[in-house]
Design a protein around this nucleic acid. Sequence first.
DNA 1: GTCTATAACACGATAGAC
DNA 2: GTCTATCGTGTTATAGAC
Lengths: 205, 205
Amino acid sequence: MKRTGGSAKNVDVAEPPSSTEQRLMEAAGALFASKGYSAVGIREIAREAGLTIGSLYHYASSKEDLFLKLMRRNYARVTARAREAAATGSTPAERLANLVRAHVLAEVSDSEVWRLNRSELEVISPEARAELVALRDEFEQIWRRVIEDGVADGSFAPEDPVLARFSIIQMCNGVALWYRPDGRLTLDEISDVISRQALALLRAG
Amino acid sequence: MKRTGGSAKNVDVAEPPSSTEQRLMEAAGALFASKGYSAVGIREIAREAGLTIGSLYHYASSKEDLFLKLMRRNYARVTARAREAAATGSTPAERLANLVRAHVLAEVSDSEVWRLNRSELEVISPEARAELVALRDEFEQIWRRVIEDGVADGSFAPEDPVLARFSIIQMCNGVALWYRPDGRLTLDEISDVISRQALALLRAG
DNA sequence: GTCTATAACACGATAGAC
DNA sequence: GTCTATCGTGTTATAGAC
């Protein structure tokens, strides 16, 4: 949006794939995810994005604001994918398996969202924290509804649906901790195994 | 160890329960766990422990050294508890359930160990990182052996034993993220549920 | 929209008195 | 073993030229 594009030529390059803001977000995401919010300085982010600090502050009013913009963008993406996955499939078991697969795959591309959900929230302002917690809750409700549907129609029988949801999401998030592209299993294989683990847990745990 | 104790009186107070070093470690552990390694300054740690920065450096040669000492101490504790739990019980299923219960309980008291296992390792020196990774691996081997025993005697049939181990440990670690003492379930109830989830996962996932 | 320069302050660490 | 004082550097953020 915005994108005034001062120059006359409105050629069909259809939005440059790497605008400055895009590069900034990607640099910030990669750095935050690998070292954590507090360990990353704005100088480092700016350098990685090919900007100076002064220019960085044109896109975000503070380091926290930059973090928040990044997290909003990534939550929007993973939540959209989750909604789509949860709507695909005729049975709760199929829908949950799709959800798990989508989430494991999203993990690797948008791992910032989950890696930064621990200590980082203790560091930022209460207002920012509240917003991020709300986004996380919105995401988790998608899972809650699928599990509830499965309980209602008898295909799931978890001892405690809430704890089952926590454990399953936690299992998925864990993949980002050890996954390496050159590992023993492909990401597709991993997401398949995890989805069956989740179903096993919902049927008996 | 060391503990020269320059003063003459070797009275039987049997080591004060809250020595300065103890207080320092507790303060550092609580702060590191809640905000992350990078977000905590040595000033804050010193203040919380009731010391000045100068005194803090009498107990550790650097911030990283302090972190390392803390993590060694906590890993020793959780690993010892895990070993004990894994040795208690006649069947692999019982031993694994004990392991899960012990780990979930340890989570809350020594949560630093697990909370600091992500981005923090990217921030510290390679030598320190290698040592902590080795301690984590040692801990995970305890789980690996129990799972292998269960596979060998046919009581477990996980699709992928390694992924099952990762997921189960991840499930346990997740408890520390949301557990509150005034919550719906007690820690004992939670650890029981998680242990059954783990068994469900090992039998069919 | 990007830059240079810098303000204002916190950081980890050290020296040396007691 | 604890303190005060301080060094050098890094931090986030801002001002203002272009």
